[in-house]
Design a protein around this nucleic acid. Structure first.
Lengths: 219, 219
DNA sequence: TAAAAATTTTAGATTTGACTAAAAAAAATT
DNA sequence: AATTTTTTTTAGTCAAATCTAAAATTTTTA
């Protein structure tokens, strides 16, 4: 089975939305894809006909197991290309998302297998997200949100919550990346800001919003 | 300026057809693209409106200088990706054409510049065709057709006439590739077949058709 | 050079994915 | 529980790229 780029983009977006809530709604998906609800409804019918989607009118929807498999295949391609762009072509981690959005739609099993081997079967992409293997399996990351750490706990940044250039710009300004080790100096309940310290540099504070976009492994 | 994949495929096909005859015809192009003459006419109008094509109804057509620049950009992308697929990902030279047909439509200047640098600015693709540089300039190849060699001349294979899998299958069966050194044992006028010898192996003969698809540099 | 053949273009239809506006259904509110 | 608001779907358009069939033009040939 091959799918159009548009179908693939819908499948991928539904997959990501399913993580927060099992059933996805038409408006949610329209917002995510920056399109209109009517366009979404059209595509839902198409995906249902191809057995990629469990969908009843007005009732919300979710991917079928076939749909999930397809989603994992697209995510695998996206993350492998991101890894290649950053590690081989020397792109910054904040520059690769859009290019990977295009590359992920290239359809060649052999290409992806060979790319995977060329990169030595990486397990995580440059943003810390796990890369599904050829069977769709990926490393369980058991990452926790930085906001859930306690005062004085140490941790290593292992993933970021989104690829938005706004987030990545802020992180690079603050010198925070995947692998950065930090510890919590103090959490403030007034505005939920968190003061953190990286290595020997001066402590500084980050907003609740930023903390929620950072995933860490406690040390 | 960005173009659709379809527009780019037309531009590229016209560029290649222009090499044999300055003016290209509707039917020629339709045959090349495996589409219908009516579809070609539609696209010709579109390309003319974008100043990519010099075209008057019923009179044949050719790329404008802007059109040629676009064509060279696409060919550059195609050949760089082919080089990457063969030299880095370990594809056979007969497996890469179709994948490169897709990859060539990815639009990112930065991606291609970084890929070019990663590959150390290669001058020829795996089929021996020159890769245009960022300004569209490419190595003049002054290759001659194998069929134009004389008895006893030695030469090195430097390019093949097409990427058809049929041709590449035959060449790999006969152990002929880019860089293969051979010499002409005898040319037969009856069927224009040519007996050649590679290194110390036994001489064997190749058909006129095959010889015409092989380009060489005399040694 | 006039008729026949081939080529090219136009006209009108189809498919895919998007849109707007209106209708239908579900959810929220009084 | 009835009304209002929000969400979702349907109906009808539109643009891009394709196609078939028919018309227009050019080329070939008798």
């Amino acid at each position: 089975m091959n799918f159009t780029s548009s179908e693939e983009n819908y499948i991928k977006a539904i997959y990501h939305l399913q993580h927060s809530s099992a059933l996805v709604t038409t408006n949610e998906l329209a917002a995510q894809l920056k399109t209109k609800a009517a366009s979404v409804t059209d595509m839902l019918k198409k995906l249902k006909n191809k057995d990629l989607l469990l969908y009843e009118k007005y009732q919300g929807f979710q991917l079928s197991s076939k749909g999930k498999k397809v989603a994992l295949g697209i995510i695998r391609k996206h993350r492998l290309w991101e890894y290649f762009l950053v590690n081989n072509l020397q792109f910054g981690w904040d520059e690769v998302h859009e290019i990977a959005e295009d590359l992920e739609h290239i359809n060649s099993k052999l290409l992806i297998e060979k790319l995977d081997a060329y990169l030595s079967f990486p397990k995580f992409d440059p943003h810390g997200d796990p890369i599904p293997d050829v069977n769709g399996k990926m490393e369980p990351t058991k990452q926790i949100n930085l906001i859930d750490l306690e005062n004085n706990q140490a941790a290593e940044v292992s993933a970021v919550g989104s690829q938005s250039s706004e987030l990545l710009e802020l992180l690079s300004h603050k010198n925070i990346g995947i692998g950065t080790r930090l510890h919590i100096v103090k959490k403030f309940s007034f505005d939920h800001s968190i003061e953190i310290k990286i290595a020997d540099s001066a402590p500084f504070s980050i907003s609740q919003q930023l903390a929620q976009s950072l995933f860490v492994k406690p040390l």
